[in-house]
């Protein structure tokens, strides 16, 4: 369960990322977060696994108070939350399997970590994850030789191998063509249903959000302006989420680089 209580996030440059957000997501939900670019979708997602710190309020994930985590606890906590990105963020010049196995690095003894030699059990787990997303035959291909859709599935397998409770997906299909996007969305749906993993997904294709998610969260200038089951979403609501007096500002606003 993910629980935001009055969460506010203000960036160093005084840009308000999130404004007084209250949100509760149960285990196994498939939630799509929609809104304009710069509305705070990425910020919301990155607060969940503490890639961003929240400024005030309370954020609990599976009964853990995220704000109180430090150092090693953060990393252990993150290992149970998978994350998928718009630009895939895979390690280029490395094989598909090599990319997937990186998830298991923190659990290896130091000498294996240094040399990059994985035990047999890890490799099997990696192959299994690849099989799960249907690209087992590409295991030893270099990732830079795969198509965008295949790369995103490698990224998905990378999260699966860590046996996560939650997967955060930041615009996972924005860089893909419509057909491939559907294939990847299908993967998310299947993983959500079969493995009961919660999925939080930022997306700007409203039609895909409506087709796949159980629940829609609309966000505008850092505030949640809609939260409800997909069935309740009407064109007026979509309009409400995307309508803004500061459309230009919101579009031009750049979220600080996530370093």
């Amino acid at each position: 369960m993910i629980k935001f209580e009055n969460v506010t996030k203000i960036y160093d440059n005084d840009h308000v990322g999130l404004k007084n957000v209250n949100l509760q997501i149960e285990q196994g939900e498939f939630v799509a977060i929609i809104g304009l670019s710069g509305a705070g979708k990425s910020t919301l997602l990155r607060c969940v696994n503490k890639m961003h710190e929240i400024t005030s309020g309370k954020l609990t994930v599976n009964e853990v108070d995220v704000t109180k985590l430090k150092g090693k606890e953060v990393r252990q906590f993150r290992s149970k939350i998978g994350m998928v990105f718009q630009s895939f963020n895979l390690i280029t010049r490395t094989s598909v399997l090599g990319n997937v196995l990186v998830t298991l690095v923190p659990s290896l003894p130091w000498w294996r970590r240094l040399l990059g030699i994985y035990p047999r059990s890890a490799k099997l787990a990696g192959l299994e994850a690849l099989d799960n997303v249907g690209i087992l035959e590409k295991a030893y291909t270099r990732v830079d030789q795969l198509s965008g859709g295949q790369q995103q599935r490698v990224a998905l397998a990378r999260t699966l191998v860590g046996d996560p409770d939650i997967i955060l997906a930041d615009e996972p299909v924005a860089a893909l063509d419509p057909v491939t996007a559907k294939v990847v969305m299908n993967d998310f749906q299947r993983i959500n249903q079969q493995l009961n993993i919660s999925i939080l997904l930022n997306i700007h294709h409203v039609d895909l959000a409506l087709a796949y998610a159980d629940r829609i969260v609309g966000i505008r200038q850092g505030e949640i302006v809609f939260d409800g089951p997909t069935a309740q979403v009407t064109p007026e609501i979509i309009d409400h989420i995307y309508h803004s007096h500061h459309v230009e500002d919101a579009v031009n606003e750049k979220v600080p680089a996530h370093v």
């Binding site: 990393r75 290992s79 990105f85 990186v102 690095v105 923190p106 970590r113 990059g116 990378r158």
Partner: peptide, 20 residues
Amino acid sequence: MGTFEALESLGLTRLQAFRY
């Protein structure tokens, strides 16, 4: 640095993220 971020999101330390 997207890859670096992705590896940090997997719970790797900065040094490990550099190595891998």
